[in-house]
Design a binder for these strands. Structure first.
Lengths: 220, 220, 220, 220
DNA sequence: TATGAATGAGAATTCATTCAT
DNA sequence: GATGAATGAATTCTCATTCAT
């Protein structure tokens, strides 16, 4: 998990299989991953519109034609690469939520996870934040991801509301706000405009969401 | 000011001139505006990368070549269209800030202005929020607009802090948060995912930023 | 006849007309000439392929549309401009030939006239020497001009042969050689590669054609 | 070596290699050559300005895009095609000069080589004699070729002068004259205006340059 | 399977020509 | 007549995708 080569899949994958995995499958999965990661690095460098299949292939160390053995089209590469990384990100956030604890603690863990993920996988953010320039299908997928993301955050808020830790009203809207703020903060961090330590960033945002800015600081 | 045809310039323009404006100038300005607006609609429909000069021209009701009488390149169309609208948006937000009053009131006015602007000019949001894949110049311009936007919001917060209405700390970070939340909310509104009345949306966000979500609702 | 503005027509034109020339005709001819001269200057500056109608029009001080009142197409402008200048050049050479005298004298006069014409009308040479990139018609015209040119020179040689001043054989081939050498010399002069005084250039070439390079210099 | 398909490279290429040439290299070189030759034929037919990449590609029997696998731009095709052929031509002329012998003999060999080359590669002459309308770089290249050509001829004259075979004065100017005459003669031959046998053409020109036209024919 | 040469649809841009004013 | 805005055909170049080896 170096900064140089984002790993799209969870670090440890437990395979529960009863028939052996053929070498072809292993190689195939390895290629898929390599191409997706290459796509991300290229998009990170050049932007979505300027990421050519040729450059992605070169970056992945394969020939251009090979890419089409694993993906049907350029769009599919982008799509799958995004999806793989989003799934990973949302899985981590979910984990952070499920770990439980007081709301403030959970919120901080979620923010840390989220912002930290982008600190680590800077190449990914261009993909994640690109407006849907692609097909209708692609657009739909992005919206669905957004929905899942908001739903997770809303679950976190709703749970806290049930416990009486936060005002009960409209967890989804709060979730939207959190997502928006994180996006903007990540943008500034990746773009080099801001370089607060992660913990500091998280504390500031947790304060903001918990207490607003009108009240005097309550804790810590 | 229909949704169909965003107007890029202030609604009422008072011309104080003593020498008449030639017809050519008027036609020229009209064409420029028509092309910019067409560009916005096409980008709104197809996304930035898929907006071709041909389609922009058709949308504007002119031939492809005509576009190049008014703009040097596709990039310039996009650039100018974005800039015209951003200038207009930021001018309105600034006005909302300068009108003064208690923080909560100012904040609500700003949110209303901002979100309302995008409600009115839905086509514009893809341009405003697009990652800049283009030239270095284009990238710089976008960052500069972002900077201006945040600076305005920060000024609002700083003024309130001076008056003791909000916690003094770090107006710029608050500004970034506000910008992020508004972006996300606008995205959902334009995308049809959310249809709260504008006033409701504003009140919710104002509450959030003023009091956070941990305290019980304080006012209203 | 300034270097700045080559005049395509003989300096003094004696009109033998019995009905008055209307103002329209005068203006018309003036415009025609202005446009042709402009075309030459532009071609001289930019090359044939890069000389646009717009730039020719601007150079001539008229609007683009006006050009089409006097010429049917860009090609016709180029065609006519070339033709006018070629006619002028050939007329001068003919004059130089017709003035008579010993061969050597006539040859020198012709060379002086020819090379001198291009020294004066440097803009013209690009047109004159351009290979026929245009239509079949245009190609034919150029060949015809070449033929006339060679025929004139051949007449000069033939006359001298008749007088026994030069070897009788094949005046046309000699004429071709003279035309070729002049073209090359002019090219170098205009291109700035060579800057011998005109008289010197002429003397060298006259020596070459009269005596070859094997014999010792005979005269002067 | 048909008139239909000028061969840009020397007829017999002796490859002294100890590692095998890959098939890719061979195919690549073949394509390069095919495209260059196609370019020449198209320029020969349509003129430099009217030779489009599409037509060159079709003539070469490949798709438009293929051309760009081997050349960076239309200009480069033209440039390289010209250069390859010019290098070949000048190499042959140099060989003719270096073979030595009495001036008259060398001159005849050079003229035979030069005119003969264009008799064989008629398509090439439009490229060789075209004015350079293109980039500064392209212009420079053409001048440099011209310079090399003249320098070679001048060397020939200078050597003869040293041996006392010709008047010593100004070999370069003589060289320019020779170049000019050859150009013109080639032009007429290619254009179908003249169809003297090559040997006859050469003898006539050799006579002209050696003895001029005033003296009675001295030899043969 | 892997390759990368070949393809050709499609994009931006230019400019000769037309035509309403 | 004169103008210059408008047009759109034509051109160069790119790049996703295919396919023979």
């Amino acid at each position: 998990m170096t900064a140089d080569r984002p790993v799209l899949y969870p670090d440890r994958v437990v395979r529960i299989v009863n028939h052996p995995v053929t070498k072809e499958q292993v190689v195939g999965e390895f290629r898929c991953r390599a191409i997706q990661e290459a796509a991300m690095r290229v998009v990170g460098r050049k932007g979505l519109a300027n990421a050519t299949v040729q450059e992605i292939a070169s970056e992945a160390g394969v020939a251009k034609g090979t890419v089409y053995l694993y993906f049907r089209s350029r769009e599919e590469i982008i799509e799958k690469a995004t999806q793989t990384a989003v799934d990973e990100l949302l899985a981590r956030i979910l984990e952070a939520i499920r770990a439980g604890g007081p709301f403030r603690e959970v919120l901080e863990r979620v923010l840390t996870t989220h912002i930290g993920y982008f600190d680590e996988h800077q190449d990914f953010f261009r993909l994640y934040f690109a407006m849907a320039d692609g097909s209708e299908e692609s657009r739909r997928r992005r919206l669905e991801n957004r929905r899942r993301h908001v739903a997770q955050l809303a679950e976190m808020v709703a749970a806290a509301a049930k416990r009486g830790e936060v005002r009960a009203a409209e967890p989804e809207r709060v979730a939207v706000a959190v997502a928006g703020v994180v996006r903007e903060v990540v943008f500034r961090r990746v773009d080099g405009k801001s370089s607060y330590p992660l913990a500091d960033e998280v504390e500031f945002l947790a304060d903001l969401f918990c207490d607003g800015i009108c009240a005097p600081r309550r804790r810590r």
